[in-house]
Structure formats: structure tokens, C-alpha cells
Design a protein around this nucleic acid. Structure first.
Lengths: 219, 219
DNA sequence: ATATATTTTTAAGTGAACTTAAATATTAAA
DNA sequence: TTTAATATTTAAGTTCACTTAAAAATATAT
């Protein structure tokens, strides 16, 4: 049996809100790899504790308190990821799962010291913004999924989703990394795949992959 | 309800073996701040899993497997303490409880990288030896409790027990730290307290305190 | 608009690590 | 060595975060 904490639910709801629109128990269950019934259970508890707004069969929303807490956890997660990657030089695809454990086992004081030691980084190794002590995100240009671009669009890789480590391994193997400029050479309508040119290389990316790579458009 | 893992039991048994001689359920219960009944419960599980040798009403021993595991956990603990103190500059008295959480949330790979980053430290900030990857402890001179010394004995402070953070705060306040040389000026028989001279200062330490400070004798 | 499919909730049950209280062993003292 | 004190174990019960299966509500398709 997996044993997921309230903290995980809050982070998951926060993140899903950005990706999906309305949040339903099913999506949370899928995301955390547990049964929908367990989600219903926990939503009741989170609701009585004032972290989420929840009415049976209706959508789910974080309260202000819940949002604060979620951002707090995400801050911990991203600072740990940065530490593991930048300082300990752990491989890109391993830092997410490792940070997922550490985020539940570190005090605020520790994380603040960590942030100081890392010199107040603004983005984690996957390109996600790191909230500061007050929960504010650093300013950054809007990102969109690579899968949304059309032929001849140009942009810079800004973020690669960490939801599956295989994706990160694959992206690295294809020579993709944050900050690289590229041009969309082609987009195949029938399967949604995208062919981009980075430096002199042409790389073909499936729709699934492209929708997990986020970029900043060249204006 | 506290929720202590098997890992905690193994570390506790390992550490208690050094301090107390024979290990009884009661001592473990006290150490982990849980009921003796819970200890009996867990001992059965650890026994069937092959981590401890356990017969009802008899003493408890780690098996080779249990010992390996315990050393492994202690390695993690002490490396994390070193990191928190040396790198993040967290206060001495806070690193123990923080490391106690982190040790359960970090993979072997992470801890090995941490060790490398710290440049293979041999002792943690409290003076405890750090086991290497293979579980071997660094060579070090034998230490004895300060409470065992007699008048005019000389020595060097080598270790200060981390079992209570108050002790660490107190020791620091009295100006005690690892590596300091001292002379026993007096020992009061009726309460076991010890007066030592460090540099030009004379400090009086209760028996309780003195029995938690370990030193290397001057030959 | 009704039937069907999907989603969500409820109900009942599990396993892990506890708890307290009572029963049983062991150890120490008279 | 018998009794008293202490330590340990057993028994029964709790809490937490799950599970599966059935019931209920909502959404979708014809």
C-alpha cells in the first residue's frame, strides 16, 4: 500500500490546476496512483482542516490556506531538486523522486538555509520557477507547450516536465536542454508530432513528448 | 501517536548496545518514547525478517544483517548532520533532529554523493565516527566518559552526546567544543560532579553532563 | 429524453504501528 | 525461598491511509 501524505495531495492539486483546468478526484487519483475512493476520503479531511473547498460531486479548489501550504511544499521540492542537481551532480532524471521524499523531511529553517546556500535560485533544473519564502514566484515570460507551435515558429526551451523520468532521459538523449533555441521545421497533422531544428540537428518529437516540453516564443 | 520505522529500531538497538550492555525492550521503548508493548510487537517482526535475534523474555541482539542495516542508517544520519552543520551552518543543537528525518528519506546513491561532496569526513559534528560505504568505522583513539576521570587527569574533548539538544546548548554555553584540551581540577564524590579547567576557565559539570561528554586521555 | 457509460461516493475491510490494561515471567529483596 | 517489585508479553482496541465492491450521481450518446 502506498502511503501518501496530505502534503502530497496539496501539491498535486496545485500542480494539476495549472495543467488541467477543473480538478476532479479522478485526476488526483491517477496522478498519485491511488484509488479514487482514497481521494474522496482525504478530500473530506483536507476540507474540514480548511485546506480545500470541497462539495460532493463538485470541483475541488484550494483555499488560501491550502494554496499557501502547497506553494510551500513546491518551494521545498524545487530547492531540493536544485541542490541535488547543481551541488551533488545527481542525474537529471533521478532528482525528482529523491526530492519528493526530502520535501517531507525538512524544516522551514533548513530549506531557508538551503536556499541561501544555493544563492537564491529562481528556477529548478527542469525549468520550473521556485517560490520565495513568501510564496511569490519569480517573474518570467509566459511559456507554452511545444506541441502548440506551428511550422517555422521559433523559440527557446524553457521547461521540461518532470512527471516521468523516462521523458527526461529521452530528452537528454535527443540533445535537448534548457535554454536551447530551435525552429519548428514541420508539424505532422495526423499524429501531432513535431520536427524541430536545434543547432544543425533535426529532431522528431511525438505529440506526447512535445506537450511536455515548454518553450518561450520568439516574438 | 508517534510513528517510528523499523529503521529507527535498528539504529536504536545498535546505539544502545554501545551505551548499555544487554538490550532489553524497556530501554528501547524509553529511547524511542513509545510503549514497551509496541517494542515487543516490532521485535517479532524484525526477528522474522532476520534483523534481530529475539527470544521471549531474553536479551536482544542484532543479526549480521541487522547490524549492516543499522550501520547503514547511522552513516546516513552522521553524513546529514555533517552537511547541515558544515555546509548549511545550522546550529549544533538542531542538526540531530533534522538528520533523523532526512536519514529515512535519502537513497544510497544520494548519500554517497553527499559523502563525496563533503570530502569523506571521518567524524560528525558531535564527534561520532562516520561509517564508510562498506560499514567500516574510521580508526580512532578510545574515548571514555568525562565522568570516569579523576583529579589531575588531562584529556581532549572528543565527543558530545547528541541525545538531548539541551545538553548541546549547555555545553556550548560553557565554552566546550570538540578538540579542546582540559585538566580535571576536582571531582566531588557526593554528587559526582567534575570541575575542569579549559584554557584559563574553570567549568563545573554535573555527573549527568560529564557522563555525556567523551574524551581522549592524555597518555 | 432516455439509456448507457463514466465518475464519484459510500460501505466494509486491511495492514502497519501504535495504545492501554491485564496476564505472565523474571529479578530482587526480605 | 517465598514474596514483592519490575519487566515483558498478550489481548483488545485505535488511528491512518489505503483497498475493493456496490451504490449513487453526473455526463454523454443515441
Amino acid at each position: 500500500m502506498k502511503n501518501i501524505s496530505k502534503e502530497d495531495y496539496l501539491s498535486a492539486i496545485y500542480k494539476l490546476r495549472d495543467e488541467a483546468g477543473e480538478i476532479k478526484p479522478n485526476i488526483i487519483a491517477e496522478n498519485l496512483e491511488i484509488s479514487p475512493a482514497a481521494v474522496t476520503d482525504m478530500l473530506k479531511k483536507l476540507s474540514t482542516d480548511g485546506f480545500v473547498q470541497y462539495k460532493k460531486y463538485k470541483g475541488i479548489k484550494l483555499t488560501a490556506k491550502g494554496e499557501r501550504y502547497a506553494v510551500h511544499m513546491i518551494r521545498k521540492h524545487r530547492l531540493w531538486e536544485t541542490f541535488l542537481f547543481e551541488v551533488l551532480k545527481m542525474p537529471w532524471e533521478k532528482i525528482h523522486s529523491e526530492a519528493e521524499k526530502l520535501e517531507h523531511s525538512s524544516s522551514d529553517e533548513l530549506v531557508d538555509k538551503l536556499e541561501e546556500y544555493l544563492n537564491y535560485p529562481k528556477f529548478d533544473p527542469h525549468g520550473y520557477p521556485i517560490p520565495d519564502k513568501n510564496g511569490s514566484l519569480p517573474k518570467h515570460k509566459p511559456v507554452i507547450a511545444l506541441s502548440e507551435l506551428r511550422k517555422n515558429d521559433k523559440g527557446t526551451i524553457a521547461r521540461i516536465s518532470d512527471f516521468k523520468s523516462e521523458l527526461l532521459v529521452y530528452a537528454a538523449k535527443q540533445g535537448l536542454s534548457l535554454g536551447q533555441k530551435f525552429t519548428v521545421k514541420d508539424k505532422l497533422d495526423f499524429d501531432g508530432s513535431v520536427i524541430i531544428k536545434i543547432n544543425t540537428n533535426e529532431v522528431s518529437l511525438s505529440k506526447k513528448i512535445a506537450s511536455n516540453i515548454f518553450i518561450v516564443m520568439e516574438e
